[in-house]
Structures are given as structure tokens and as C-alpha cells.
Nucleic acid binder design. Structure first.
Lengths: 309, 309
DNA sequence: AAAGCTTACGAGAGCCGTAACCATA
DNA sequence: TATGGTTACGGCTCTCGTAAGCTTT
């Protein structure tokens, strides 16, 4: 058994059992990949992969159990390398963030500029995607830190820290009837108009749906976008009223739009910072988190991430 | 980085940094060991070992941190091998027990004979040692299952299951004054005579000491043995009265000795079954435990041992 | 002087990649 | 027929072990 064999097994699962693809990702030959798989299966005396003829289709029962161990072995091997780098050059390296539009656009800019000033030598990559993809990037190591409102807190292999809380708000075009309407608004007031809000699974959308449903109201959602900028643009065009995260509307800068409070209608949302459990985090990664949550120390973060024992 | 390098690092720590010894344990050449260490230190760009001149003396700070990861990697590699063996031949393999005299002599015989009948093909090794050595054998993989009263429940890397509870009892030579004394005995009654009991750290001795101390009594312990047989022999010779685990005296079989109850004087003791956290246990190991504790299923044992994630 | 680590070097095993071949969709 | 996997084989690297040399106690 060697590390290359384990890398191949892991990658085979990730690449949906296409060994040609595995070979190219691991920068080696496809025949070598084949041979390594045969070798380790021989050594263990058990089949890891299900096959139909020559094609690999999935994992055997044995393979599934083995995979858990393979993952931790490779994670720990990575931890050793990262730890060594940390000792060699604490202020150099790469940090991959995975986050949603809302965070990237409204919450993180100040944090990121502070971080760049503190660690100019760290190559910072910001990946903007969906919450589920953020989860997947954290799990397979493509991202170090994930930041989002949805999905992250649920997975047992992710460790999460609350980042900040926020509320939804209503945005209408200047001159819209709701602007003059008695405040605070009710759910009925809002549901009287076509609504533009987030896509399913983004930025508190699940909570919006639950709120309307609990009130027995069926809102007319005419458009679902992945980010606030798109929502605002169409609100400006008069397509409907916007329902979005309050922090994404800067009253001073928006022209032609009015912000109406809705704190009392929709429950508070919490955005989370997430890390992969069992993964050693570089010092600057901890510092990044501390820029978001100044009360979290490097030691505390490392300890939260560590499995027991 | 490869597995041999990691094995060498781990073994270097265990063998007190004597590379010659490491080489012989790992059945390789000493020069190879040296080179592997240099190689991995070069690869990581950090020293793992403290040196004075050419001699290795200990781990650097970096080395200490790395060691944790090295241990889990090698444990998981072992888990994969054990799991594969399980699939290949569920009823064959080796099971190493580490236990104290008390357990080996009085609690386990029936369990072990039952196990041998159920798994005649499993090579069963029974190591009789001290509780601290049992802990160490579990931690470094020389033993699969540990059984003892002391020490095991404390270590965070061990998972323990209560096995059974028992009390201490007093044993005196036939015709000894205590035999005719009013029962039940008091601590003072006992402390009036020279006492023979277990060595420090064995079979409830810590609890005995605490009990006397709490009562403000200083017992006259004239002899401390590691097992009940020795204690009984010297009680028979009239050296003093014995204070030992009740189950180690079979009234029917002992000649020349009387057993006097002491349940009311000393707190109940619990003997534990211990496993290494994170180590995959063979099916027959789980069955062995089930012979001790029929309510523990294979699935339950495996789950208890598994770190989260 | 003995024990312990490093360096040098030759033999061999294991890994990799090309190419031809076979199987599946 | 295109995609994907296996087998065969030569080259090469990496690992191992012997032996000699150097350090430390």
C-alpha cells in the first residue's frame, strides 16, 4: 500500500470512476492508474470497485468502508505538509475561500482587504458558488474556508462558527405604493405584489418560503435570482418588489430604490464560517477567521477542528 | 512522503530514538533508516528530531505535532488491512489480549474457553502485565483488547466498557481471631492486624488506600503482591490478613483460609474492557467482548470506537 | 573502545509511460 | 466507432543493504 494508490482510489470516486480522467488529474498515465488499482486490490485480497466487464461502476461494500480510512489518511498527509509549510514560511501560501455572492459582495470586502494588507504574500483565491458546492469544495479540499448562510451547519464533517446575523428587507422602486403604506408592513401587504427574491437554497430563501407557508400565504414569486444585484436591477425596472438581505442595500448609494424594514416578519438569519473537520488550518487561515470573528483564537479554531483522541 | 518513512518516525519515538534498534524492529538496515529520516525532513523542510551532533535526542516542536498525524495515518492503514482480512477470512487471524493477573486468573477463563470453541482458528495471545503496560500495549497496537480495573478509563485514546463490578474481601488463616470476631468487620478491626494486599496501581489498591486515609487510619501493610495467589499463600503462612478481590477466593476450594465480607467497608470496583480509539476491530474481537458483555453488539462497539466525522 | 549515525555505492525492486490490444456503449 | 480499460515491455527512479568512515559517550 502506498500513497499514490490511495490518491488514485480517492480520485476514482471523485471522478465518477473514470480512470482516464483520474490519470490526467493526477498527472500520470492511465495504465499506471489501472495497475495501481489492481495491485492494491491484490494486496488486500478484496475488490474495492464494482465492475461491469472492464468498466468501473462504483464501490463495493468493502470499498465504501475503506474509503473512510483512505480519506483520513490523505487528509492527515496533507496536514503534515501544511504544518511543515507553516513552520517554514508562516506568511506565505495559498488560501482558498468558497462563498456565495451575498457574502462576497457585502460582508467580505472589508475583511479581505484587511487580510491582504496583513498577508500580502498569501495567494488568496475567492470562489463564488452555491452553498452545496461550497460544502463539496470544503469536503474535498478545494477550499479552506467556506462562508454561507445555508447548508454548512448540517454536515458532520464540517465545523462551523456563526459569523453574523442579518434580516431580510423589502426593496421597492421609488414611488411604489408600498412606500407610502403604513409601516411596519405585514406579510399580506408584501404578498399583494409580485416578488423578486433569491433562488432556492440561497441566502435565506428556505426561511422565506417557510414563513409564507406558516402564514398560509402563497406569494407570487415572479423571479428568483442568485444575487441581490440582479434582484435590485429588476426591482428598478418595475418587475416587482424585492425581498433580499438588508445588508445588500446601501440606502445612501442606491438610486431609485427605497428600503422598507421587514425584521418583524422574517426570522433572523445566521451566516456561518465553515472548516473541514480534521483538516489542519494554516496560521493565516485562522487570522482570516479572526478578522471575521475577533473572539476566535488560532488555538480555539485548531481545537474545534481536531477530532478527539 | 511514504509509509516506510512514517513507520520509521513512529518507531524512533517508541524506541527512544535509537535508530539501530528501529532498523532491527522494522527488519531493515540502519543506514536506510537514517536516510529515510533525512529524506522526509528535507521534503518537509523542517527538522523532526532534536539532535546533539549525530545522536537523536527527541522530537522538535514540529515533530511533536506531526507525530499525532503520523499515528492516525498508520492506524488507519492498519485498519484497512484488518478490514480486508476480515472480509477474506472472518474466522481467522490473531487476537491479543492484555490483562492483569486478577482478570486472567478469575474472570476470563470461562470467556476464553468459550471463545476458543467459537473461533478455533484464531491465534489467541494473552499478555499478563500491569495496568499501565496494558494501556501502553493498547496505544501502540501490541494488544487489541485490554481488561483491567485501573488506569484504562482515564486515557482519552482508549474507549472503555464496564465489564463487571466486584468488592474487596478479607481472608484470614483458619483459627485467626478475626474469624470469631463480631461481623460485619469495621476498618479498625482490620487495621489492627498486619495486612497483605495488592501492589500500588493493581486491582483496586488505590481505592483501598483512599478508604483508609479517609477514615484517618494508617494500616500496617506488610506485603504488597501483584496477585491474589501470592497474597493467599502468605496469609496461609500467618504473615498477616489478606485484603483482596472477593472473586479470587473460591470458598469451596480454599483450604486453611476463611473469607470475611468487607463489601460495606470498601466501595465497589469496576473492571473495564478497553479498546484503542480509532482502531478497527475484527469481528471475532467484537465477539470476544460480547462474551463478556452480551448486550454489546458488533455495530455498537465499532461505533463507539470510531472518531466522529 | 563501544555504540551509534552518516556517506558511498552497487544490486534489485517497483513505478512510470508508450504502445498495442481488448471490451463496452 | 469512440471511449475506456488491460496487458506487455523497456527505462528509470527509488529503495535497500553492505561496508567503510566519522562522532559521541
Amino acid at each position: 500500500m502506498n500513497f499514490q494508490q490511495l490518491r488514485i482510489i480517492r480520485e476514482a470516486v471523485r471522478r465518477d470512476f473514470n480512470l482516464t480522467e483520474v490519470a490526467s488529474v493526477l498527472a500520470t498515465s492511465q495504465s499506471g492508474v489501472s495497475k495501481h488499482i489492481r495491485d492494491i486490490e491484490d494486496e488486500l485480497g478484496a475488490e474495492i470497485f464494482l465492475r461491469r466487464g472492464k468498466r468501473l461502476l462504483g464501490l463495493t461494500k468493502a470499498g465504501q468502508t475503506i474509503m473512510g480510512y483512505v480519506e483520513t489518511i490523505l487528509t492527515d498527509a496533507g496536514n503534515i505538509k501544511r504544518l511543515a509549510e507553516e513552520l517554514r514560511a508562516a506568511d506565505q501560501g495559498a488560501l482558498a475561500l468558497a462563498t456565495t455572492h451575498t457574502q462576497a459582495r457585502y460582508a467580505l470586502p472589508s475583511v479581505i482587504s484587511g487580510f491582504r494588507k496583513a498577508f500580502p504574500q498569501v495567494r488568496l483565491a475567492l470562489h463564488q458558488t452555491s452553498p452545496t458546492e461550497i460544502t463539496s469544495m470544503l469536503l474535498d479540499g478545494r477550499a479552506d474556508i467556506g462562508i454561507a448562510t445555508e447548508a454548512l451547519a448540517l454536515h458532520p464533517d464540517l465545523v462551523t462558527f456563526p459569523y453574523y446575523t442579518w434580516h431580510h428587507a423589502v426593496v421597492v422602486a421609488k414611488g411604489h405604493p408600498l412606500e407610502g403604506h403604513a409601516q411596519p408592513l405585514s406579510l399580506q401587504d408584501i404578498a399583494a405584489y409580485p416578488i423578486i427574491t433569491y433562488h432556492a437554497g440561497f441566502t435565506g430563501r428556505p426561511m422565506i418560503d417557510r414563513t409564507f407557508e406558516a402564514a398560509g400565504i402563497k406569494p407570487d414569486i415572479v423571479m428568483a435570482a442568485m444575487d441581490a444585484d440582479v434582484i435590485k436591477a429588476y426591482v428598478g425596472l418595475g418587475l416587482g418588489i424585492g425581498l433580499l438581505a438588508a445588508m445588500s442595500v446601501d440606502a445612501a448609494r442606491e438610486t431609485g430604490l427605497s428600503l422598507l424594514r421587514a425584521d418583524h416578519l422574517f426570522a433572523e438569519n445566521t451566516s456561518y464560517i465553515a472548516l473541514r473537520r480534521g483538516r489542519f488550518q494554516r496560521g493565516f487561515a485562522c487570522r482570516f477567521i479572526a478578522l471575521c470573528r475577533p473572539d476566535l483564537s488560532e488555538a480555539h479554531i485548531r481545537k474545534s477542528v481536531q477530532p478527539p483522541s
